[in-house]
Design a protein around this nucleic acid. Sequence first.
DNA 1: CTGAAAGCGCTTACAG
DNA 2: CTGAAAGCGCTTACAG
Lengths: 335, 335
Amino acid sequence: MKRQITIEEVAKHCGVSRATVSRVLNKEPRVRPSTIAKVEKAIQELGYNPNIHARALSGGSTKTIAVLLPGTWRDYYNPLLKGMDEVSARRGYYLLIRSYNYLSEAHRILQEKRADGFIIRNMDQPEEHRKLFRKLEQQGIPFILIGNPFPQYPSIHIDNVGGARAMAHHFSRHGFKQIVFLAGPETNIDSNDRYYGFRLGLAECGFDPDRVRIFRGDYSIESGSSLMPEILSSGKPEAIFAANDRMALGILQYCRTQGIRIPNDLALAGFDDTFFSQYIHPSLTTVRQPILEMGSLAMEKLIQLIEGHPLASPHVILPAPLIVRESCGCAPTQN
Amino acid sequence: MKRQITIEEVAKHCGVSRATVSRVLNKEPRVRPSTIAKVEKAIQELGYNPNIHARALSGGSTKTIAVLLPGTWRDYYNPLLKGMDEVSARRGYYLLIRSYNYLSEAHRILQEKRADGFIIRNMDQPEEHRKLFRKLEQQGIPFILIGNPFPQYPSIHIDNVGGARAMAHHFSRHGFKQIVFLAGPETNIDSNDRYYGFRLGLAECGFDPDRVRIFRGDYSIESGSSLMPEILSSGKPEAIFAANDRMALGILQYCRTQGIRIPNDLALAGFDDTFFSQYIHPSLTTVRQPILEMGSLAMEKLIQLIEGHPLASPHVILPAPLIVRESCGCAPTQN
DNA sequence: CTGAAAGCGCTTACAG
DNA sequence: CTGAAAGCGCTTACAG
């Protein structure tokens, strides 16, 4: 068990006090340049790194960001974490992640003083979340929401309405009349926004949105497949817009087993542009969520808050572009 | 900024000393049961959580595990992290993850005393890794490797040889004679082990392994597609075994554009059983990596080490079962 | 611009 | 079985 190099040794090594080393470490303004140089040299030579716990205990920062990801691990956590990892590493922060039991764990992380700030992918249980947010606010710990925005707290989300609206315009150019919207869970704000945007876009093109038939899945691949008999028996649709790519994939699977050709017999579109969407056959027309960018932006905004700079615009809405591929009946294109 | 409840207040609340509260907290043996009850009641009532930094600074544990994931974020990090998250949460540990610049960051995490132990997904750069391992060893910080094993350090990996061997047996049952193995990067131990196991299995079935033609990709989807012209022009194969599913997917994409029907004109198999493998068409025959289990096992073993219990078997090899689907020419089956 | 000293909230020998 | 006290390695008023 090798002993750690401490601030004391650095101080001795270059003939200053611990206080001065600490000031250099924290880039405080009132230190003489020559002293800074001396101290930095000693830090280099000794290979010193401050003990994070001593720093945190005496009122300094932990240089740790807690990331809370609800429920099941989803595919998109991957690019989301990648974005956060890169930005945090470059800014000298570490990532503490938790998914399992994330709400109660959040309280513990807070009490144990483990993080300088939180990034929270919030979904259901708005009341439980609100409690947490209030507590964070009281303790002066900054946080950023990803997903469902609360008007009073900073957030990053995507333009669900705009993306679905663009899909409606695209459907309209195809001239589809018999249209089905396959929604996600009833309480899911994303799904509701997509439905809203879809209707909006259709109306703009002179199509009565009430003619869209709506069915409700649960975002799973399974629910896409299993709802198909019901959807088909309600009248043959020309086109289905699923509120996410997974359900669209389920539909595709079902159609394959039934000999229904996509896009010839039925046009199909999803939402998300998940990893697999460009690789399935036919490739899926969808709306892209810029997940990685959400991750890096959330991290950047949070660090900005932690370091004392207020946000110019507390709510960032990222564009969600339409990605046209084969499943809607358009010609195959590259990516 | 609400003040934190400290051990002092808990001690006062139930009329004992800080030392005693600390002992209850750390489940030390020599405390009277009635005292334990009293202290625990106080902890409950006050909603006390120990300040992790004070604990760590005074020689206690950080209850944090550092997870190092090399290079690019891969699909399988998702189930891997899920497994780690669940186990660590249940055992009261937190996860510090880092991918970007993970080797130098590892040294910093160590110096800053951020973690009680490390889980390292090691791949290339064995010498750089060895340095890190030695340093960890010197400081008495336990760690577990996932992937390439070093004989002297505990590790979790999968039975690449056995999985590929089972695939060879399956190919042999199909009676394939013109066989191609599409390898991964030259330095990749997984790929080499799979090649070794494949040859072994073929030999066991009386097929001369030297008749297998080998090509080398880089594990990317792209490399699967782009190598196909070369593979095909070298003599028409009956079956291709790709060292991972992504390259198999690339092959599939290429064949689709060229009108080569899988499995009718060409049989195909991969390795990994990634998320998409069961959903592409035809569904992919492959070997499953039990990733989630690797994550949870690694975490369990590491916590065991941290808490002072030596491992009975330092090297765990998880089985990698053959998953037969459509792409090899077998009848479609459920998952 | 710099130093001496108090203090952050725990754990852990040392006594008893 | 329990307590008084030292100490972990930093930061931060307070002086100068």
